[in-house]
Amino acid sequence: MWADPQQRQLIERVGGRAHGQRQAGGAGRRTVAMGEQGRIALLSGVSVVAFPGQPDPAPHATRTTITVAVERFLGSRTAATTCTRYAETLARLTAITGPDHPVAALTLEQCAAVMDRWNTAAAATWNRHLSALVSFTTWAQRQELLATNPGRRLERRKPARRGDRAIPATRLEKLFTDPAHALRESTRPAPRRMSRTRSAS
């Protein structure tokens, strides 16, 4: 069962295409020269890397909507499991921007709003949805639908480390020195017994 009707509709539309036609890569990928290093910023509780200026998108990108771009992207995925896994994230993206929003106008704020849904989730869940979002924005940039990649400016989260299960040294010291936990037997090594060799008669 699908938890989100919009996610279900998205999968059905993509599945209706005969595996979809792969979109040819752009003749030339636009390169953006960054004159300064990115700075860390905080947007809606989401840690992002801020970069200067965004160049103008390719002319044809302004006519491509988020809905069309998402369907093309999912149609280009060969693995059905990947398509299903990405659908939840991209359905959220479509809901945030609106189905007719130009993909060329996708902003960092909208990407952050998408990820805000999993802001309190575990790091692994956050990273999984962020990977789906970045995969889409990277694909869109390669298709020259996006001039820059706002998804790449969102930061992955480090999974929490499992607690050390070793017994702390202070606790061990207390166990060894507390009279209530005295050892029942002596810990001194038993003296070695000298075996007598019988002389041959």
Score class of each variant (00 low, 15 high):
120 T>L: 04
94 T>P: 08
132 A>T: 10
41 A>C: 05
177 T>N: 10
96 I>D: 08
172 L>A: 12
127 N>H: 11
62 T>V: 13
131 S>Q: 09
69 A>G: 13
91 A>V: 00
99 P>C: 04
10 L>V: 01
98 G>W: 02
121 A>H: 14
148 T>S: 15
12 E>I: 05
70 V>K: 02
88 E>R: 13
153 R>L: 14
87 A>L: 03
169 A>V: 14
170 T>L: 06
14 V>C: 05
93 L>D: 02
154 L>H: 03
141 Q>K: 05
139 W>K: 10
18 A>N: 03
168 P>M: 09
100 D>W: 11
103 V>I: 09
93 L>T: 01
153 R>E: 14
42 L>G: 02
72 R>P: 00
30 R>S: 07
60 H>T: 04
57 P>N: 12
45 G>I: 01
92 R>H: 13
37 Q>F: 08
159 P>G: 06
68 V>T: 13
129 H>Q: 11
22 R>C: 02
13 R>M: 02
48 V>F: 10
87 A>E: 01
200 A>L: 15
85 R>D: 09
185 E>Q: 14
165 R>W: 02
95 A>M: 13
80 A>F: 03
143 Q>F: 02
120 T>G: 02
185 E>P: 00
45 G>W: 03
50 A>F: 07
176 F>A: 13
163 G>D: 13
6 Q>R: 10
115 M>W: 03
148 T>P: 10
80 A>Q: 09
73 F>W: 08
98 G>K: 05
78 T>Q: 15
184 R>M: 12
51 F>T: 09
86 Y>N: 03
195 S>K: 10
90 L>T: 01
108 L>G: 06
2 W>F: 12
181 H>L: 14
46 V>A: 04
50 A>E: 13
153 R>A: 13
45 G>S: 03
18 A>R: 03
53 G>F: 08
175 L>P: 01
126 W>N: 10
21 Q>V: 03
131 S>T: 13
31 T>G: 11
83 C>K: 04
176 F>N: 10
175 L>A: 07
104 A>M: 11
157 R>K: 01
18 A>Y: 00
7 Q>M: 08
160 A>K: 00
192 R>V: 15
1 M>L: 06
67 T>I: 02
89 T>S: 10
65 T>R: 00
111 C>M: 10
66 I>H: 02
152 R>N: 07
58 A>N: 07
103 V>Q: 03
48 V>L: 14
189 P>V: 14
151 G>W: 06
